[in-house]
């Protein structure tokens, strides 16, 4: 396809991606180094109170925002790393790790580190479970009668297809108040277990939710991979006396490795932006994620202000995080790719 024609075909898509992805990225980077503030002026105010014989008057200098047509005048100025400093709070970190500080626990009281800690552990803990459960499901479904596979795949797809916020809510509703599973837990353990009363149980629920939600995706990919395993090699290995375990270990898993890498990459991208669980489980008082941090900075606070500059700084740091996280697996795939060709 010639250059001009090619450009014509991709133009709509390219224009959309430039306007709505590339340009916002540039503006976020710019915003993260600037701050918009109201312009204040100092005015001499004389306030008088009735007193004996004469009024007692006090003159004070007050600073007040300059208003123009009912709207506060603002000005945007370059502030360097200030927005990042407000998020990362290097002083507080230094204090936490000084001999008198409280170390990690003090560090995790700072929103950003709390979010970073949760996002990273969330991403890395769910990964092996999703791969493992997906693989087990694929192997199990591959073994059952053909007529049953359709309905089984249908039910398995449900957790994947459901709106994430609703999925999280539906699990939360099993536990809140007198939910059915709260009763079951009480019957088993003998005392009240409140799954939404403390941080670690909520975190456990979020991990469980994400595995429940994404394992079907891993399953479908692995199941498709199993259909393309070379039957001749399997039969040859049977003749050579390989047990079921050995066949799995030396024939099937190596065949699935590219798919495992694919699922890993997609999962790293998707779970690093964990957000919907926090909304669904109302977890923000206990656990927050990087994407939630940016979101909460962007929502108006009580005075109706949005902390856009700090949100931009947080967004830039989130982006840095995903780049670092993806660099490891991507470099390995790249090296494998070049090694082959």
């Amino acid at each position: 396809m010639r250059g001009r024609v090619f450009l014509g075909f991709i133009a709509p898509s390219l224009v959309l991606m430039i306007i709505f992805i590339a340009l916002p990225l540039v503006s976020v980077a710019w915003q993260s180094f600037h701050a918009t503030q109201g312009v204040f002026e100092n005015v001499l105010v004389e306030s008088c109170a009735p007193g004996f014989l004469t009024q007692t008057c006090v003159k004070t200098i007050q600073s007040r925002p300059i208003m123009q047509a009912g709207v506060a005048v603002t000005q945007t100025s370059f502030v360097g790393w200030d927005n990042y400093r407000q998020l990362l709070q290097p002083d507080a970190v230094g204090k936490a790790f000084s001999p008198t500080g409280q170390g990690m626990s003090a560090l995790l009281h700072i929103d950003f580190y709390n979010a970073l800690r949760f996002t990273l552990t969330f991403t890395l803990i769910t990964l092996p479970f999703i791969i493992g459960l997906g693989l087990l499901l694929a192997l199990a479904v591959d073994d059952i009668a053909r007529g049953l596979r359709g309905p089984v795949i249908f039910v398995t797809l449900l957790p994947y297809i459901i709106t994430p916020v609703i999925g999280a809510l539906s699990i939360r509703w099993l536990f809140v108040g007198d939910g059915v599973l709260t009763d079951a837990l009480r019957a088993i353990t003998g005392h009240d277990v409140s799954m939404f009363g403390q941080g670690w149980t909520i975190e456990l629920m979020m991990l469980f939710y994400r595995i429940w939600h994404i394992a079907p995706f891993a399953f479908v990919v692995f199941y498709a991979g199993l259909q393309t395993v070379n039957r001749d090699i399997i039969e040859a290995s049977v003749i050579d006396g390989a047990t079921r375990m050995e066949r799995l270990r030396y024939v099937i898993i190596p065949h699935l490795v590219p798919l495992i890498v694919f699922v890993t990459l997609i999962h790293l991208m998707d779970s690093f932006r964990v957000f919907d669980e926090i909304v669904g489980f109302a977890a923000q008082a206990y656990r927050i994620s990087l994407q939630w941090l940016t979101y909460s900075l962007l929502t108006p606070d009580q005075t109706g202000n949005r902390a856009i500059a700090r949100a931009s700084a947080s967004a830039m740091l989130t982006m840095l995080g995903i780049v670092v996280l993806l660099l490891v697996p991507l470099r390995r795939t790249w090296r494998d790719h070049r090694g082959k060709s």
Binding site: I10, M17, V28, A311, L326
Partner: peptide, 28 residues
């Protein structure tokens, strides 16, 4: 062409972006 290749790579990078990053750009 190389341009098409790099466009696909850029798309892959965009795929990895957390959406809140872009929202900080859209909102103002």
């Amino acid at each position: 062409t190389a341009f098409a290749f790099w466009l696909l790579i850029a798309a892959l990078v965009f795929r990895a972006l957390p959406h809140s990053v872009l929202l900080a750009g859209y909102l103002p």
